[in-house]
Simulated assay, not measured.
Amino acid sequence: MNDDTLCRADPEPRGSPQEPAMTMARALGESPVDGSGVYAALDLGTNNCRLLIACPANGSFRVIDSFSRIVRLGEGISSTGCISEAAIERAIAALIVCRDKMRARKADRLRLIATEACRAASNSESFRSRVAAATGIELEVIDRETEAALAVVGCSPLIHPKARGAILFDIGGGSTELVRIERDREGGEPHTKAWMSLPIGVVTLAERFGGHDVTPQSYTAMIEEVTANLGAFAAQHGFNLYGMHLLGTSGTVTTLGGLHLGLARYDRRKVDGIWMNDIEITQAIARLCGMDYQKRVANGCIGAERADLVLAGCAILDAIRRAFPLPRLRVADRGLREGMLVEMMREDGVIQLN
């Protein structure tokens, strides 16, 4: 494992996000947090800008608005070290839409985060200052441990109720998080046993090895690159997997889910929560690898925005499958935003811990 790779066991509980959320609400001109209003969670990643707005309902939450746009904030960072001007403009345009949606829905409890691109870029601080000036949004750059923890909160409801645990993975644009989640007893609450974060995601891998024209040789090279970075974590935590399954959240696994279901157009309602066995995953990846770039663009579950990234994501997934050879994968079209919403609502006492 290289020096940039983070690997920790039994992380300490995260601090409360309440104060940054209150500060951001004031910046947007909204009312103070009262613990019973409208909640908003924004995730500005290396590739996507995503927003979820929800209200507490029946012990969970009800989504009242959402937004997702690929902005490629991390484009070129691996070679230049900076967020480009074009990426800044794309991100600000998307964040203006998010701000307007939060205002229209009168969201009064917010958490607005940025991840790997803002962690890695040398001009991250100036970028966030421009975002604040243009939109009123003050982005909170979270560390990799927090990112992994939020993914656990957002996705853990999809762990099979009779499973001993899961290997959760979140393949992002600039990093990939893995978490070993276990129950101490049948029916118990799943909790994190160990986690790691790789400074490798679909954008960084595709930029390094190519994303438009992927040969069998370059695909294998991508798998080997990720495998080398996974080695130490897999050696420590890739054993005693009986009764566990894979749990994946990312555009890669949701795309594979859509292909597996034969969808003409991607539909979250049909994909979130589906199961794929090892043979089905292999078949879906083989189908993708057999498509040229134009066929990937034309596919309704991929499109032009993901066509040059999806095979890099498959290579990351194949490396994870090698390290953790589990027979089934559950696909999650959920993650950080849902995790932020649940955390805020639990803190405010409007939903209860399971």
Rank of each mutant, 00 (worst) to 15 (best):
A315K: 01
D272E: 12
W275M: 14
D348H: 11
R322Q: 14
R265G: 07
T249Y: 03
F233P: 02
A234I: 10
P325Y: 14
L247I: 09
R287E: 12
G300V: 13
I281F: 03
Y293F: 10
T252H: 04
L261C: 06
M340P: 00
V271P: 00
D278I: 06
R328G: 07
G349M: 08
I281C: 11
T255F: 10
H260G: 08
R287N: 10
V350F: 06
L317D: 02
H237W: 15
R328E: 15
R268H: 09
T252R: 00
G251C: 12
A315H: 01
G273K: 00
G349Q: 08
D318C: 13
Q294Y: 08
G248N: 07
V350N: 12
R265T: 13
G313W: 01
V350P: 01
G262M: 10
M276L: 15
A319W: 02
A298C: 07
L246Y: 07
K270N: 07
V271E: 05
L288G: 03
A235Y: 06
L263W: 08
E305N: 10
I302K: 00
V310P: 03
C314S: 07
A319I: 11
G248D: 13
L309N: 03
E280S: 07
R346K: 15
P327A: 10
V331F: 09
G238D: 14
L259C: 11
D333F: 05
D278L: 04
L311E: 08
E343I: 14
A323D: 10
R269T: 14
G238S: 09
T255R: 00
L326M: 14
L309E: 13
G262F: 11
A332H: 06
L317I: 06
Q283K: 05
A312W: 02
N277W: 05
V310A: 02
D318F: 04
A232M: 13
A307C: 01
H260D: 12
D348N: 12
G258I: 09
G238P: 03
L263N: 01
R296D: 10
G273P: 00
V350D: 15
G257Y: 10
E280D: 14
T249L: 08
Y242I: 15
G248Q: 08
A312Y: 01
G349D: 11
G290V: 00
L256S: 06
V297W: 04
R265M: 13
A228F: 15
G251P: 00
M276F: 05
